[in-house]
Simulated scan of single mutants.
Amino acid sequence: MTTLKIDIVSDIACPWCAIGYARLSRAMEELEGEMDFDIEWHAFELNPDKSGQGQPIIEALSQKYGRSPEEMEAAQADMIRIATELGLNFGKMQERYTHNTFDGHRLVKWAGEQGRQTDMKMALFDAYFGHAENIADHDVLIRCVESTGLDGNDAREVLESGQYGEAVREDETRWQNAGVSAVPAFILNGKYMIPGAQEPDTLVQALRKVAAA
């Protein structure tokens, strides 16, 4: 059976990244028995600034895109509807604050060495969009780790020691140099990029096409 390598460049703070993976999951379910998948997550920071306590998300998005808070709330409500239909918890999406995700990305790298990378990513998505938690806070990150069945004490050691920081920076640089400027981005077999959160049917067609190449 063909195994397709899928590198996913994303940020924990990106709602379309969570939606994009949920759609990819549906596509992979449809292709079960037809091909296998090797998934690897890669870091991207929408908000690389580590200073401050964060900003209310609606306010931050209004300033970033030059749109009214009402317009941003409507756009967010549309994403909540899409996410809910996919089984994601986006219950507190509009209550969240902007937060840096660098330490979360370090833990995703660490979890990957233990075969729990996707579990870690999903836990972080749930904490941020489902519970509006501060995903820069180490206690929040440790709770996410423990929810995956990994050891919280080991994770705290990673966070306090700065481990995987260089790996995250190298990851970010590599994919930016490869042309990834927005997320999510799905790179198939290291050659073909699918940008954005495409619909499951579109992904099924793309995966089949690449697998047959």
Rank of each mutant, 00 (worst) to 15 (best):
G104A: 08
R208F: 08
R169E: 11
D137M: 02
M122Y: 13
T98R: 00
A178M: 11
R81W: 04
E70M: 08
V168C: 03
I187L: 08
A197I: 01
L31E: 01
L141E: 01
Q94L: 14
T98Y: 02
Q176K: 14
N177A: 15
T202P: 10
D103P: 04
R174S: 12
L107R: 07
D78V: 12
P184W: 04
L203E: 00
L88D: 00
E45T: 09
M1Q: 10
Q76Y: 15
T2W: 10
S25N: 15
A13V: 03
R106C: 06
G52Y: 08
P15H: 02
G130N: 13
T173W: 11
M120H: 12
Q76G: 14
A43R: 08
M193L: 14
L159M: 00
K50T: 15
R23H: 01
A197T: 03
I80Q: 05
H131W: 09
Q205K: 13
H105L: 11
R174H: 14
E71P: 09
A127K: 08
A75Q: 13
P195K: 02
E45F: 05
E30T: 15
R23I: 03
D49G: 02
I194Y: 08
I187F: 07
H99D: 09
S10Q: 11
K191C: 13
E133D: 05
G152W: 04
W41Y: 14
A197P: 09
A18H: 01
L31Y: 03
A27S: 03
E73M: 14
A123S: 00
Q53L: 15
R67D: 08
G112A: 12
E170G: 11
G149W: 01
